[in-house]
């Protein structure tokens, strides 16, 4: 069971000339276009998977740049007016001594998005190169990326609740900066990129190798 490779006796739906529904797993013959169980459109593999992965990936990377340059929060108090970026917000939390929360925000807003960009690029490139190494690890990586990506949205919600709550005109007010929009877009684009990836492609590589 361990390691990569072709296990004798196992057949994929595609090799058997069948199409499995991506949503519910129901198996159909090749002529079917709609799943007879859940009515989803049937494809043996997600159509144009890698092109879509790269298109959304690029959009995610591009919007991530202004998300880190422009202010996320604009704070006005009696004594000062300040603007803080994502990193600025983390530094501020460290100043207050809230190390745990600073860590959560740092991981959710910086580590997870960057990690996702690298992970998705690695998965897409390894599939394009028809690599059959580390299939189990890559499959696992894909599911981690898919599961964890949405948690990056934390900072957008932090901005939303702070801006709604801190509106005391004479004492203090907090308003969202333009980076909030860029950041939210970046998270959504990266989620779409991960969703466009078809994990079956990871496992197709050793089929191709075995048939050579």
């Amino acid at each position: 069971m361990a390691g990569a490779g072709h296990i004798a006796g196992l057949t994929t739906a595609r090799e058997a000339g069948l199409i499995a529904c991506h949503r519910c797993g129901q198996v159909h013959d090749q002529q079917a276009t709609e799943c007879r169980r859940c009515h989803a459109t049937l494809h043996s593999r997600k159509p144009d998977s890698l092109q879509k992965v790269w298109a959304w990936w690029l959009a995610g990377v591009i919007t991530f740049i202004p998300a880190n340059i422009y202010p996320m929060l604009i704070t006005n108090t009696l004594v000062e007016n300040s603007e803080s970026t994502i990193i600025g917000g983390v530094v501020e939390l460290i100043h207050y001594g809230s190390y745990g929360i600073a860590f959560i925000v740092f991981v959710a807003s910086i580590i997870i998005p960057l990690g996702k960009f690298f992970a998705i690029a690695y998965l897409a490139i390894s599939v394009q190169r028809r690599s059959n190494l580390n299939q189990h690890q890559r499959n696992h990586l894909f599911h981690v990326v898919e599961f964890i990506g949405r948690w990056s949205m934390i900072d957008v919600f932090v901005v939303a609740i702070l801006s709604a709550l801190v509106q005391l005109d004479t004492v203090a007010s907090i308003n969202p900066g333009i980076a909030a929009v860029n950041f939210a877009l970046s998270v959504v684009f990266t989620m779409l990129s991960a969703q466009s990836f078809d994990p079956r492609l990871i496992w197709d590589a050793d089929r191709a190798a075995a048939n050579d």
Binding site: T11, T12, A13, E15, A16, L18, A20, D29, N139, I202
Partner: peptide, 20 residues
């Protein structure tokens, strides 16, 4: 050898790797 031994109704494919 590509010849199915079971009717379609009794098959289920893995959602991640397509194995029957």
């Amino acid at each position: 050898g590509g010849q199915l031994m079971l009717p379609l109704e009794n098959l289920v494919a893995c959602p991640q790797c397509d194995t029957l």
